[in-house]
Design a protein around this nucleic acid. Structure first.
Lengths: 189, 189
DNA sequence: CCTACCGATCGGTAGG
DNA sequence: CCTACCGATCGGTAGG
């Protein structure tokens, strides 16, 4: 609905707080203070706290989808390059200061039924893109297994990196993506 | 400390509620009602809400560690059988009505510094066991990659199953474990 | 294990 | 966007 610069800035700050503290522990007063306004003023921009979560998750998923599509267009048209591009794009949106995507994955269950219905098509589109790329890699003989299971295992491995990745460490998201693809690819490739 | 049957039953019920609702949304009143007592009475068994979480996570991790060790002793002494036994044990504690292990993984960040210090040795022991089994599989040439990265990717893929697994579906945890190992193992094996 | 209750804090509102 | 405030609910306690 509304999409003012003010609302966008609040959405960005909310994403940061939701990652740091979790949605339930983030209070409207914390978000207001971060923005430099009073808590009551938040509800000029959002109907309620749930709508803030919804805005963050929508932004995070849309951005992840856009980045993934750009990465696919920019890379070589081989199944291996496309798989690597997807993994790299996913990790970069998760690990390089893109809080909204982390919220989309880790706070999805906090959405009420209405918000979930509104956002599920976006989520499905992102997963469908993954299944397409994984499916092509399977047909090319690059990897093996069931399309849906492989997609879920790979996404799980990627999503869990949020829990242990150290940005000050020696590995970049790109290297992590390469290592994951190497793990599921026979050495002959 | 205390370990009465009453406290154990409360820990079991708390694990169930923490998985369903999340730790933050579970109130002491919900837990008391589930147990059939008044909320004030809970604090005869636990100092505060944090200690309930600590008890659940301790139980979940200890149980996962015990089940994994049993599985390793019962299986064939080959790297492949041991890897499969670990994955299967992990999935069964996560997916087959063992709520405490899910809480240990998904609510770890809700622990305060004191509880975390008390439990980190248990968590480390479980991860060390995984790294040992993965390390043996690497040396045997069954899989390839970095020991720590492979361990983390595999555990991530397993942990994320909680988010999409359907107990009414057609696949058992054992089949899931087999498919995951197949994914990271060259077809020649 | 219960009754009775507490101070704090929560999300959200009314009126300007 | 602020002031001023609300009803509800939270974790936890005292005294029995």
């Amino acid at each position: 609905m509304n999409d003012s610069p003010r609302r966008r800035e609040l959405t960005r700050l909310a994403a940061q707080l939701f990652v740091q503290e979790g949605f339930d522990r983030t209070t409207v007063r914390m978000l207001a203070q971060e923005m430099g306004i009073k808590s009551g003023s938040l509800f000029h921009h959002f109907r309620d706290k749930q709508e803030i979560l919804c805005a963050v998750i929508e932004e995070g998923t849309q951005n992840a989808l856009a980045i993934a599509r750009e990465a696919l267009e920019a890379c070589a048209p081989t199944p291996e390059a496309r798989l690597h591009a997807m993994a790299r794009a996913h990790l970069e949106t998760l690990l390089t200061d893109r809080n909204a995507h982390v919220v989309a994955l880790y706070e999805w269950r906090r959405l009420d039924a209405e918000s979930r219905a509104h956002l599920s098509h976006l989520r499905d589109a992102y997963e469908a893109l993954w299944q397409e790329v994984v499916g092509d890699a399977l047909e090319a003989g690059l990897i093996h297994g069931d399309k849906f299971l492989v997609s879920r295992f790979v996404l799980g491995a990627l999503n869990w990196t949020v829990r242990w990745y150290d940005p000050e460490g020696s590995r970049t998201p790109e290297e992590l993506a390469r290592e994951l693809i190497a793990m599921i690819t026979p050495p002959s490739h």
